[in-house]
Design a binder for these strands. Structure first.
Lengths: 339, 339
DNA sequence: GACTGGCACTTGGTGCAGGGGAGTGCCAGA
DNA sequence: TCTGGCACTCCCCTGCACCAAGTGCCAGTC
């Protein structure tokens, strides 16, 4: 083993010990708990080098070392491998999620299971409307010149709107309209379906266009509904209290951030199907010094639906957390693809 | 002013000062800040009497006095009057809530406004299904022997289910079924509508009964949906950090309680249209020593829809909180009654 | 009888000094 | 390149004295 390799070994040991004990780790404790094959004096030299590289730091002169954000970054990138979940853990996720009755329920259960598994704050974005396809569109005439519009998406979400129109809709026109709407949208992704909708209006007789237009406009609104794309569920905030003093600031700004859904969506970040880790400033949120986010996209092979993840102290068990996030993402994706 | 009256005046002053300063209040500070017309020695005697009655307590021998739960109770019952909201506050509630687009939005906005107004944790229960009436029922035939069932309630909530039936539904039967379902349910309260539904099945020809039964059964399920009756929204948890050390325990058990919706519903308690206050053990929750709940039912005059309220430290501004809870409840009730 | 001024007493908080412990950096030697 | 040893630094805990705030009680006054 080269000296360079041993230095990285030392870093790994420091991260692991610090995560376990929450206390700065010194050279002596290190040689006692790990088989490094050298003396504490050597470790001290290595530590000095690691500190020069900005990978670890000392809270004060005569204290042990603590990993820096950069140190965690290196640990995640090169020194750790994703831990496999235990059988019972995997079964727990599966049985718990399988019991869900609808999309909302899936999301809420995912949040709960993820929070319990990781002992951190769990964040799950609702399946995106814009990323799923249209499974069904239904138009129903109600009394008093009103129409009920129902859209069912491939992720199982159901959206409905009531449209006021200028006169009662005849049965012929109704079924004609229904047929063309279905033809233009079903099976297509939402953004494409939106485009096709615009063409539908022109295929109707001029006399019918006002009515058709109000229905189509409402449908377009449903498709472009930003609000529902922003929906997220949060759970396990009680865990914040557990790692209380860890965040440089108080937990208050963190709780505030968790209530701002826009902030949360930024935190989850861009979708990748493998778990991504953002540490400290990498989260792009100033009030989250001392915090890290582990996130992953979920969906089926060819279709990303949304993102989920956890928020915890930088001092977290990255391998375990990444495993949990990855596993839950896979199960959620599978369930929503089936349903 | 009798001696007895002055004692209650002293209690009121202690509560007000303690709420304002968060520090035990002594006899000297009391005579300085209030026009009590007697010396600090007299106040000391009064305080000793109040302490004998269990209305105030000393953290330690040489400290000032702090109100006990019993003291707050007396204060709320006899010594305070509900503070009127300021004009800007009332206008803020109104404009903020008026912008809501649907029931979910109303609830979410209410939580936000209530949390901001009171600087406490806000809890809003979604309008109860069982307490509202049926506004509309719609049955739509989908492809592949499936039927879409839509229910719209008086509170504006829309529920939908897809029912698998054994064979495709003829147009005649469909409109017949729709008509009878509407006749049996629309305009009635959900529990009563449920009862009527049972009779509908028998009015159909035996051959049609299997299909009718599956639809009616599903509809009954929607009506008796307990899950949606349990839904609550929580906001302002960041305020917990503000009154941090106030709760006897840590904030952790409180955060945990806030994630358990069942616990929250118990906290909101039985519905009364005027703001109710529960202090300390009165909340019926052991982990909430040091906390108080102010809650109120909302709805129209003759119809209670659900409950909302706030959770804060016993050391809170009761008059202001009760005013805010009452005002938000009134506005929410009005908006949902109109919508 | 109710109120007041005065006084002794209690107690938590703060500032200060000293000792112990953990850990480091560095140096000389293998 | 590694190791043992040693001097040094700094945090943290403890004990101590002191102060401020507040009380309880008592004797005196209206």
């Amino acid at each position: 083993m080269s000296a360079e390799e041993r230095r990285l070994d030392v870093l790994r040991a420091i991260v692991e010990d610090y995560v376990a004990t929450q206390e700065p780790v010194g050279s002596r404790a290190l040689v006692e708990r790990h088989q490094l094959g050298v003396s504490s004096a050597t470790i001290r030299n290595d530590m000095a080098a690691l500190e020069d590289d900005g990978l670890i730091a000392q809270p004060h002169t005569s204290a042990g070392r603590v990993p820096t954000d950069k140190g965690y970054r290196l640990f995640v990138d090169r020194l750790s491998s994703v831990k496999a979940l235990s059988g019972p853990e995997r079964r727990a996720i599966e049985t718990f999620l399988t019991g869900a009755v609808d999309v909302d329920d899936v999301v809420q259960r995912s949040v709960k299971v993820l929070a319990q598994l990781t002992n951190q704050v769990a964040i799950v974005q609702y399946p995106s409307l814009t990323r799923s396809t249209v499974r069904h569109v239904e138009v129903v005439a109600l009394e008093n010149a009103r129409v009920l519009l129902v859209v069912i998406t491939s992720s199982g979400r159901v959206e409905q709107r009531i449209v006021e129109i200028e006169r009662t809709l005849g049965d012929d026109l109704l079924s004609d309209l229904r047929g063309r709407l279905v033809g233009a949208t079903v099976g297509r992704r939402i953004p494409e379906a939106s485009l096709r909708l615009a063409e539908v209006i022109d295929t109707f007789a001029p006399a019918d266009r006002p009515i058709v237009t109000s229905v189509v406009t409402t449908l377009t609104h449903v498709f472009s509904n930003e609000r529902s794309d922003e929906r997220v569920a949060v759970g396990g905030t009680a865990n914040l209290a557990r790692f209380g003093g860890d965040f440089d600031g108080a937990i208050r700004p963190v709780l505030e951030a968790l209530e701002e859904h826009v902030v949360l969506l930024k935190l989850l970040g861009e979708a990748t199907i493998d778990p991504t880790v953002r540490i400290g400033t990498e989260t792009g949120n100033d009030s989250l010094t001392g915090a890290a986010v582990v996130s992953s996209a979920y969906g089926s092979q060819d279709q990303v639906l949304a993102t989920l993840g956890t928020l915890g102290p930088t001092r977290m068990d990255y391998p375990a957390t990444m495993a949990a996030v990855g596993a839950v993402a896979r199960y959620v994706g599978r369930i929503l693809a089936d349903g």
